Simulated assay, not measured.
Amino acid sequence: MKMETQKEMKDIKSQAGTNDSVQKQIKDKFGIDIDQWQFDADFMGFVTDEHSLNMVKDATSDLFKGAKLYQAPLKAVYHFLKQNGLPDIVLLDLSAENDLRAAAQALIAIDKKAHLVVIGRENEIELYRDLMEIGVADYLVKPVTAHETQRVINRIMDAKQAALMDEDQDLYEQILVMGCRGGVGTSTVATNLAWILSEELNNQTCLFDLDVHFGTAALLLDLQPCAGLRDALKKPERLDKLLLSSSASKMTKKLSVLALEESPNSELRVDPSAANMICNFLEEDNRFAVIDLPRTAIHLFEPMMKKASHLL
């Protein structure tokens, strides 16, 4: 039985390149014109009986607008998917196949990133484990129900959404806040933005006030500035992760602040290369860096502005 299925899949693969002849064979044998099928990149379903077709239709009516569902044998389905690729989620009835594992593996080989849900007849844990091992997303046993089908599809969609959120969490974003003139509330915006990102949205965030003489970030948060930042800005060659960590004032577990309150008579000037190095270090431990950039020094920080994810 296994040899017959493997031979059948091999025959389908070998014929996949001759589109016209294969499509004519499919039309002559099964009365199916796959030229009339419409490809959908999000979801498609292929079943072999009317009951399954109705159940899948009920399950997907609220999930996908105008879901593309077809009742057809594997030969027609394989040829169509070989030519068009697999949608993101594809539900496929393989209950008529002698070797369900081999049939599923042949389809997964077309696109390993697709989420393949297989329908079969055998309710065996060993079969389920084998299918999961080769990359099948889930397995449904006939007779399928609308509720179970919808539950499986929802689980796949939820897992995809969670994966996207995890990817977003790994991204570092640098937000530059600048004012057109003094007194317009630039520091207030930067400080409140950093607080929201860290405390309300639960992201590791650093607020970096680059206005070392007239900046108000530390004052707004009632923090004592750390003198270590002065050394880091004056001598960038000494800058390392340890020095930067000791230079930051810890407001909360999620929010740290880099700020100074230098006297107007102080000769301290921010070295742009030092500021860029600090931003590079911030990327290692923070999800967000909110940088309050003094309007008088914007021309010195063009590289930082180009790297910024957002400019406010």
Results as ranks from 00 to 15, higher is better:
residue 168 D to F: 03
residue 202 N to W: 02
residue 169 Q to P: 00
residue 136 V to C: 05
residue 137 A to Q: 09
residue 178 M to E: 14
residue 199 E to V: 00
residue 234 K to H: 06
residue 235 K to A: 14
residue 190 A to E: 10
residue 172 Y to H: 04
residue 217 A to L: 11
residue 148 E to T: 05
residue 175 I to W: 07
residue 182 G to A: 10
residue 224 Q to R: 11
residue 234 K to P: 00
residue 140 L to F: 04
residue 193 L to A: 08
residue 177 V to F: 07
residue 197 L to S: 10
residue 238 R to M: 13
residue 233 L to V: 08
residue 132 M to C: 13
residue 229 L to Y: 05
residue 159 A to N: 09
residue 140 L to A: 06
residue 238 R to D: 15
residue 217 A to R: 01
residue 203 N to M: 06
residue 173 E to V: 00
residue 163 A to N: 05
residue 183 G to K: 02
residue 208 F to G: 11
residue 228 G to T: 04
residue 147 H to I: 08
residue 192 N to C: 09
residue 173 E to C: 03
residue 161 Q to I: 10
residue 196 I to R: 12
residue 166 D to V: 01
residue 186 T to V: 08
residue 190 A to F: 04
residue 167 E to R: 04
residue 137 A to E: 11
residue 205 T to C: 05
residue 187 S to I: 01
residue 234 K to Q: 15
residue 131 L to Q: 02
residue 207 L to A: 05
residue 225 P to A: 14
residue 145 T to Q: 08
residue 223 L to G: 12
residue 162 A to D: 09
residue 186 T to N: 08
residue 202 N to Y: 07
residue 181 R to Q: 15
residue 226 C to D: 08
residue 198 S to T: 03
residue 151 R to M: 08
residue 214 F to Q: 01
residue 227 A to I: 12
residue 187 S to T: 14
residue 226 C to I: 02
residue 141 V to F: 00
residue 195 W to G: 04
residue 142 K to Y: 11
residue 205 T to M: 06
residue 164 L to A: 08
residue 226 C to R: 09
residue 136 V to I: 05
residue 140 L to V: 03
residue 220 L to G: 04
residue 168 D to G: 07
residue 212 V to R: 00
residue 154 N to G: 07
residue 162 A to C: 02
residue 203 N to G: 02
residue 214 F to C: 07
residue 198 S to V: 02
residue 235 K to F: 13
residue 185 G to C: 13
residue 132 M to E: 14
residue 231 D to A: 10
residue 217 A to I: 10
residue 224 Q to N: 12
residue 181 R to A: 15
residue 154 N to Q: 11
residue 210 L to T: 07
residue 186 T to R: 15
residue 232 A to K: 01
residue 187 S to G: 07
residue 207 L to E: 05
residue 190 A to D: 10
residue 157 M to F: 03
residue 235 K to C: 11
residue 161 Q to T: 14
residue 165 M to V: 10
residue 192 N to E: 11
residue 178 M to Y: 06
residue 149 T to S: 14
residue 168 D to Q: 06
residue 210 L to A: 09
residue 219 L to H: 10
residue 134 I to N: 01
residue 238 R to P: 02
residue 146 A to T: 05
residue 140 L to E: 07
residue 214 F to Y: 08
residue 199 E to K: 05
residue 140 L to C: 09
residue 170 D to Q: 10
residue 213 H to V: 07
residue 164 L to V: 02
residue 221 L to W: 01
residue 224 Q to H: 08
residue 227 A to N: 14
residue 153 I to C: 04
residue 228 G to D: 13
residue 233 L to N: 12
residue 180 C to A: 14
residue 151 R to H: 08
residue 135 G to E: 13
residue 216 T to I: 13
residue 231 D to W: 04
residue 184 V to F: 07
residue 199 E to I: 00
residue 218 A to G: 10
residue 142 K to T: 13
residue 194 A to G: 07
residue 182 G to Y: 11
